[in-house]
Design a protein around this nucleic acid. Sequence first.
DNA 1: CCTGACGTTTACGTTAACGTAAGTACGGCT
DNA 2: AGCCGTACTTACGTTAACGTAAACGTCAGG
Lengths: 134, 134
Amino acid sequence: MGDERTWTITQLADEYGITLRTIRFYEEQGLLTPARNGAHRVFHEGDRVRLALVLRGKRLGFGLDEIKKIIGMYDAEPGEAGQLRYLLDQIAVRRAELEQRRRDIDATLAELDEVERRCRTDLDALRTDMSDPA
Amino acid sequence: MGDERTWTITQLADEYGITLRTIRFYEEQGLLTPARNGAHRVFHEGDRVRLALVLRGKRLGFGLDEIKKIIGMYDAEPGEAGQLRYLLDQIAVRRAELEQRRRDIDATLAELDEVERRCRTDLDALRTDMSDPA
DNA sequence: CCTGACGTTTACGTTAACGTAAGTACGGCT
DNA sequence: AGCCGTACTTACGTTAACGTAAACGTCAGG
């Protein structure tokens, strides 16, 4: 039932292609809170998921404190109405940011397409010159 | 014909909500190459477009040197076949990155939706408790 | 003529996100 | 007993992307 599987710090680092230092740093910043066996860190499934979320946030270009807030929203306690409204607000803000990013991505992809087309046209032209050097 | 309109550094800074320092820094890094009137910078339409591209790159979380390469692709000279193939390679790389980012964004948006649903459910529960305090 | 707005350069300061030692500790193998 | 592998903490170093201050030029308006 209760997800017995655990990981060491190097196992997680290997799995996600990051360094031990990075994981320790994330803990230092409060992004991770692994259990301890003496001095050694013990990571459970939840820690693993959180780490994945952090890395995704990074790929999205968010700063670690931003990521901390976002992740914090995932496991927010129900709390009182004020907190809930604040949370909804924050969700709206993040969503707006992400949607802006998606628009940026789409625009950039479109321009890359354009560049690629020009590129292939130029290549074709070169080939034509080669086979028809008159 | 030849786009006569020009801008001062403050005009561009105001338009894009950045500082003079930032624009000067971008020039220092070779991302912008405005003309000069004596010591004063004179920005033409092309510079303005490039600045917009830089800022979009930043919103996407790219570093300035990455952005420099990407923008460099836009105005690459036809060049020889080897260069063109390299460029096509680079385009493929960027595209893969951007598509990964879009997947990340979609996943995050989906999770935000989930959090929002839980949030609204909780709010509803609170309202029900209020109106039916038995 | 002096001030203020706008621009310039040079250069040191700052923050984020780690990198990189240095030194210590502990369990297992031979 | 000695060493290896893995992990720990502490702490200074580094890079990117500007911020910020200092000191100066120049042109229009009062």
